[in-house]
C-alpha cells in the first residue's frame, strides 16, 4: 500500500467501531455479575438465565410481530411510491415524496411525540399496532430509497420491449419488472425488519404497556443483576443482525448482477 499511515488509522478505526461489540460475548460468557476486569471464569449461565425469562420471550414475540408487520407494510407502501416516482410525473410530486421521506430528517423523538399526542387525543389504545404505525412511518423512506434505485436501474425500454413482443401492462410487470426488482424487495424487507427490531424511542413511547425487545432491554439495564443476561441476549442479536445483513447484501448484489449494473456498494 502506498500510504501505511492511513491504513493503520483505518484498522484502528475499525477496532474503535467493533470494540463494544467484541466486549459483548466476552462478558456474556464471563462468570461474574459485575461487568469488569479481570475475567473470573467461563459460563453459559447468563444464556440459560436469559432463555428461562418469560417476559423476555414475550418481548421477543412482540418484537417479531411488530417487525414483520412493519417491514411488510413499509415495503408495500415503498413499492407503490417508488414505482410512482420513477415511472410517472404527477402534480405536487416533490411535495408528496418530500413528506413521505421526511422522517429521515426528523428527530425520532418528535415523530414519536407528535404521533402520541394525536393517538391520545383520538383515544386510540396503545399497543403493538401503534408501534407498527410508527415503525411503518420511519421504515417507509428506507423502502422508497432502496426500491427507487431498483426501479431506476431498470432500462425503460425493457418494459417497452415486452409490450412490443405482445404483452399487456400487467403481464409485462409480472414477467419483466417484478423479477428484476425482487432483490430490491427482499433487501427492503430485511432492512425494514432490522430497523424495526432495533428501534427504541417509538417502541418505548407508543407501546403503552406492551414491551418489545429494545424497550425490554432498556428497562432491564436498571437492574445491575440483569446486565450479564442482557449481554448474552445482545450477543445473539448481533449474530442475527450480521446474518440478516449478509443475506440482504447477497440479494442486493444479485440484483445488480441481474440488471447488468455496476456495484457501487453500500446500503444507503
Amino acid at each position: 500500500m502506498k500510504n501505511p499511515g492511513l491504513r493503520v488509522y483505518a484498522i484502528g478505526y475499525l477496532i474503535f467501531l467493533y470494540a463494544p461489540i467484541i466486549l459483548l460475548p466476552v462478558f456474556a460468557l464471563n462468570d461474574s455479575k459485575v461487568v469488569s476486569f479481570p475475567l473470573t471464569g467461563f459460563t453459559f449461565r447468563w444464556f440459560q438465565e436469559m432463555w428461562a425469562d418469560d417476559s423476555l420471550r414475550e418481548a421477543l414475540t412482540n418484537s417479531l410481530i411488530v417487525a414483520i408487520c412493519a417491514s411488510v407494510i413499509a415495503t408495500a407502501l415503498g413499492l407503490l411510491a417508488a414505482r410512482a416516482s420513477t415511472r410517472f410525473t404527477f402534480p405536487a410530486k416533490g411535495g408528496i415524496l418530500g413528506l413521505i421521506m421526511l422522517p429521515l430528517v426528523l428527530p425520532e423523538m418528535i415523530v414519536a411525540m407528535s404521533l402520541l399526542m394525536v393517538l391520545l387525543a383520538v383515544g386510540v389504545p396503545l399497543g403493538k399496532h401503534t408501534i407498527i404505525m410508527g415503525h411503518v412511518l420511519i421504515c417507509t423512506p428506507f423502502a422508497v430509497a432502496i426500491l427507487s434505485s431498483a426501479f431506476q436501474s431498470l432500462d425503460k425500454s425493457l418494459e417497452e420491449a415486452a409490450y412490443d413482443l405482445g404483452e399487456g401492462p400487467i403481464s409485462a410487470f409480472r414477467l419483466i419488472i417484478l423479477p428484476l426488482v425482487t432483490p430490491g424487495i427482499v433487501s427492503s424487507l430485511l432492512i425494514c425488519f432490522t430497523i424495526s427490531l432495533d428501534e427504541f424511542i417509538i417502541a418505548n413511547f407508543l407501546g403503552g404497556n406492551t414491551k418489545v425487545l429494545s424497550a425490554y432491554i432498556y428497562g432491564q439495564f436498571r437492574f445491575p443483576a440483569k446486565v450479564p443476561a442482557m449481554l448474552a441476549l445482545g450477543t445473539i442479536l448481533v449474530l442475527l443482525s450480521i446474518t440478516l445483513l449478509s443475506i440482504a447484501e447477497y440479494f442486493r448484489r444479485r440484483g445488480i448482477a441481474k440488471t447488468g449494473g455496476k456495484d457501487t456498494g453500500g446500503f444507503l
Partner: peptide, 19 residues
C-alpha cells in the same frame, strides 16, 4: 463499517456506559 451500526442501538449505548 456498516455492521456495527445495525446492532442494537440500546445495547451499544449501554456498552459504552459499561466501558
Amino acid at each position: 463499517i456498516t455492521i456495527p451500526f445495525w446492532t442494537s442501538y440500546v445495547i451499544r449505548v449501554f456498552l459504552w456506559k459499561v466501558i
